[in-house]
Design a protein around this nucleic acid. Structure first.
Lengths: 137, 137, 137, 137
DNA sequence: GTGGTCTAGACCACA
DNA sequence: GTGGTCTAGACCACC
């Protein structure tokens, strides 16, 4: 598998945040499974044309978030979700972000129905069972 | 109505962003209606104990987003939604944020059903309050 | 108050860890009180003759640990202990470190009594009431 | 006795340090007595699924610390405590670690009493197991 | 070969 | 003036 990460240099998101978010999405979508090895820091940095420190920072933050584990001298690997602990602070932050996003959507002129269906549409991308369904066809 | 805005000093959000987001939420919930006057910059700055420039920045960005209009010498007022224009860039940004939030939620260990119901729950808070306002008319 | 932090270049502890630990000790001893401002990153870096990034790293980790809060554009301040949340993982890590230290002490040939009295001796340094006692004299 | 050592891949401790610390704890608790033979390097490495060099490194450092002696062709054995020499540097390092741990405990919100009782509790685990061993003699 | 640490120095966002 | 981000490049610890 090549590199799926795309950096948008002009984005308001910090580069290390873009890397973090895209890896988190890949994990959520199952594109990266438990125990899978992330690209080496230097290698990914070279491919994204960013500084190795920037990639390392993303990896460090992902580790602090419990998403990956780093084995010294070996590399960085996707962690077991069972070992991740759900924090109350994380949940409240999530709710806060949902509220912010909903408010922006409504102020953009979207109706509640439009927002809900848009959200459902995006959810389906992450639906684990979507793969299973395909197998059943 | 007094000041409902709460600044969290330790947040990763910039202060001016916190102000913007909370005003947008208030508008989305109908707590601030069309034509309602926002607090004066200096007064709000004083109550929030922040620099007036910070409040002014939030107001300026809200105006650029079409959420409010500033009438010189009179103050800042919530604009008519009909005048706000939905931008394609805004929509793609919205989708991007939804994806990010969904990924984080799933990585937090929430099931798709839990995420969907959590989102619906947050949506209703916006529905409920706006309905109350409509009922009063 | 000047700078109380001392960096030992030849230590096996990383420089940023030395900074973190000494600030934590200063807070625990009450030398740094709630709301007190830490030295500016660049200023402290200059005094310790280390790179600003190294100091910034220490500050960032202290913030993640909930010890300090950073207000953008203003500085870094000692947080309110009431807002710090005690994590189960933190406690188990603490116990693990205690076990390690006790084992090393015993293997150094210290008797249980000697270890206990040594620990009590070090505890007194942190005793909040030591200041009060002085006032009573 | 089988292998009691547990490697935590995600720990911030290096693997060889984890091995060292756990062997030191076993000796301090009396689970490993004077003259007892440590597992062979290769066998332990196989069971822990780590590189034999890593285990060898731990053994070498333990020998340098005077905890074990290696007899060529025979294996590695727990040394006689009388032969271990208490170094002034070791003691000051111990004190430093105690201070660090106490500071972290207090910053975690534990009261001095709680810290002292927690420490006593951990101390007893070492007392208890060593007593049991003595009783068996 | 892997990640961790540190330096030197630049530019930006924020208040 | 404050911290945040990023780059370029070096050295080290670990496996």
């Amino acid at each position: 598998m090549g590199i799926w990460i795309q950096i948008q240099p002009g984005s308001d998101k910090a580069v290390y945040t873009q890397i973090m978010d895209q890896i988190m999405e890949a994990i959520a979508r199952g594109q990266l499974g438990i125990g899978d090895k992330l690209p080496a820091v230097r290698k990914l940095a070279e491919e994204l044309v960013v500084n190795p420190n920037t990639v390392a920072r993303a990896y460090t933050l992902l580790e602090q978030a419990g998403m990956v584990v780093t084995k010294k001298g070996a590399g960085t690997f996707v962690s077991d979700p069972k070992l991740r602990q759900r924090d109350a602070a994380d949940l409240s932050l999530l709710v806060e972000r949902m509220d912010t996003i909903i408010a922006r959507a409504m102020n953009l002129g979207l109706s509640p129905n439009e927002i809900t269906s848009l959200f459902s549409e995006r959810m389906q991308q992450f639906d684990d069972t979507s793969q299973e369904k395909e197998e059943l066809l």
